[in-house]
Design a protein around this nucleic acid. Structure first.
Lengths: 182, 182
DNA sequence: TCAACCTGTTTGGGTAGCCAAACTTGCTAG
DNA sequence: CTAGCAAGTTTGGCTACCCAAACAGGTTGA
């Protein structure tokens, strides 16, 4: 059971991910981004941002012009865009397919956006696209509506009896399959 | 845009989550769990485990009998079980609904299991249960099969042109909706 | 002109985790 | 009986983040 520590050995950390996407956001929104702007937007001190960005500059992801205005390198843009798209896709999945309240969906997406693999994010995108283009219309729509109705408000106790039993079933089935392929 | 730091302000950290679920696993599997066993299973040193478990003992999640055999308190069991179930549900979602290769699905689930909200996990469980019990049969099945075919192997470049355009559409739509409710 | 202000950087302090290495304990094989 | 080994703990070091506070530079209003 090694491999669980791949957690923090990602392309970028949670912190770095937010620094990058924030710079991109500020550029799109206001046309410029400075250390203070990033700090304000992230709710941390200028000092912290200064130190973090020094690292990201050394890694060649963030650049700075003569007026201390920040920018992203091609690689930086690529990473920031990837993370941002993952966030959108996950949030949409949680909210529109699973029926989660928007705020919770956004928070969950924000927490995991930089952790999910490209493969998974891509599959989420394709699923959403299929649903969008009506390739899974009536029954899917109906199912989603039902899900939405059920998930009214907040779950009081996780896992519920039913879900727990179901998860145990899934686990058992998985164990059996592992036995097959071995 | 504060709130992005809820990341590490969860009930338990990624590390703690794995310590707890490992103890539970060892108890189920072998009937006992010691510091060394946990260390071996997690692939880290006894020293690290010792220190971490001291904290978890102080928080009342882990207990220890006179023979240095580890156990979980009621609260510890509750947390470990919750995380474990989230992992199963997410892994199943990624693998069986999104068509992700099992190993990747497991890794992704492992990375985010302790981060997703109870609400989201619960909704995933209900969705899977609906699919399971045939409440979204033909078209869903067909869609899943198609997804599986498409996602042959690993995504070379994320995001693809198509997914990126789609994500932009989703984002734009979302922005408009925010305008409505404001 | 120059004090006040805003911006950015540096530094010392704190937490969380990891490792390596030294130490303590207790059991067990000669 | 004791030497040796395995298990657990402690300690010093490292990285990654955060903050607060001190400091350095540029702009600007009076």
């Amino acid at each position: 059971m090694t491999g669980w520590r791949e957690f923090d050995q990602n392309l970028v950390s949670h912190s770095a991910a937010h620094h990058l996407t924030t710079i991109q956001f500020l550029l799109d929104e206001f046309g410029y981004a400075r250390v203070s702007d990033v700090a304000r937007h992230l709710g941390i001190t200028r000092g912290s941002v200064s130190v973090t960005l020094k690292g990201l500059r050394q890694r060649g992801l963030v650049i700075e012009d003569e007026h201390k205005h920040l920018g992203l390198s091609d690689e930086g843009v690529r990473i920031a865009r990837g993370i941002h798209i993952k966030r959108i896709l996950l949030q949409t999945l949680f909210r529109d397919v699973l029926g989660i309240e928007d705020e919770v969906a956004e928070q969950d997406a924000c927490k995991v956006e930089h952790l999910v693999s490209d493969d998974t994010a891509d599959a989420v995108g394709r699923l959403l696209h299929k649903i969008e283009t009506g390739k899974a219309p009536q029954q899917m729509q109906k199912m989603m509506k039902e899900l939405e109705k059920e998930s009214s408000g907040t779950v009081s106790d996780f896992p519920s009896e039913k879900i727990q039993k179901f998860a145990e079933l899934l686990e058992q089935r998985q164990t059996e399959n592992e036995g097959d392929t071995k």
